[in-house]
């Protein structure tokens, strides 16, 4: 219930109505949305029990390594209801054609694959918030100084997931494990997102906010 309360309000992408609906506008909207999501994710992380007990340096290392996993998990969860469409925001849904036009075919295929996996599992909101908090603490950053503290947080959230599933689905003892086994695909998908955003940055021409650039370069 703590995690449900910590869940941020949804963001809107608000594509610029004065700009023609081009690939350029799609990418600009996407990068602007990602920047605002980042601010929200950083604020959200502070509400995850124990996160603020990490040193500031470790909080930074953790977020720098997992922010895209947290972001992508949210997008995949929002996309559960629609096949082959990626819901970056309620007012910014990219189907296959729009994705192709913007050069986002591979990213959208990857997020759709993750969303399909969650759809098959019938992932619900409680499980989604649990998994997102676990993804935060599942960092493998080599810059973490006190890995034991991060591991302790991870164990705590893992335990909470086990208890949740034990209460709600005592007939399905594999449920928690099945959810945790989606984490490799989440990491792979976030890797795809990183490659995509990085190549947009390298090509240039799409405005990117400072925080987004800072995290992309981290």
């Amino acid at each position: 219930s703590h995690l449900l309360v910590a869940e941020p309000e949804k963001l809107f992408a608000m594509p610029d109505p004065l700009q023609p609906d081009t690939a350029q506008r799609t990418l600009t909207t996407l990068c602007d949305l990602a920047d605002r999501e980042l601010v929200v994710i950083i604020g959200w992380a502070k509400h995850i029990p124990g996160f603020l007990s990490l040193s500031l340096a470790d909080q930074m290392s953790v977020l720098q390594s997992v922010w895209l996993e947290v972001l992508v998990l949210g997008v995949a969860y929002r996309s559960l209801g629609c096949e082959d469409e990626v819901v970056f925001a309620e007012d910014f849904v990219l189907d296959e054609d729009m994705s192709r036009a913007a050069g986002l075919t591979e990213l959208n295929a990857a997020i759709s694959q993750l969303a399909r996996r969650f759809r098959t599992l019938n992932l619900d909101r409680e499980e989604f918030v649990m998994l997102k908090a676990i993804a935060l603490t599942n960092s493998d950053s080599i810059y973490i100084e006190d890995m034991e503290a991060v591991q302790k947080l991870r164990d705590l959230l893992h335990q909470a997931l086990l208890e949740l599933e034990c209460q709600r689905r005592p007939d399905d003892p594999q449920r928690a494990g099945r959810l945790l086994l989606t984490l490799p695909l989440l990491r792979q998908t976030a890797g795809r997102a990183l490659t995509t955003f990085y190549s947009i940055k390298t090509r240039g021409g799409v405005p990117m906010h400072k925080l987004f650039l800072e995290m992309l370069e981290a």
């Binding site: 909080q59 930074m60 977020l63 400072k210 370069e217 981290a218």
Partner: peptide, 15 residues
């Protein structure tokens, strides 16, 4: 840390 100024600042904000 100088390179990650904004993240640093956002984490230090009390919100």
């Amino acid at each position: 840390k100088e390179k990650h100024k904004i993240l640093h600042r956002l984490l230090q904000n009390s919100t």
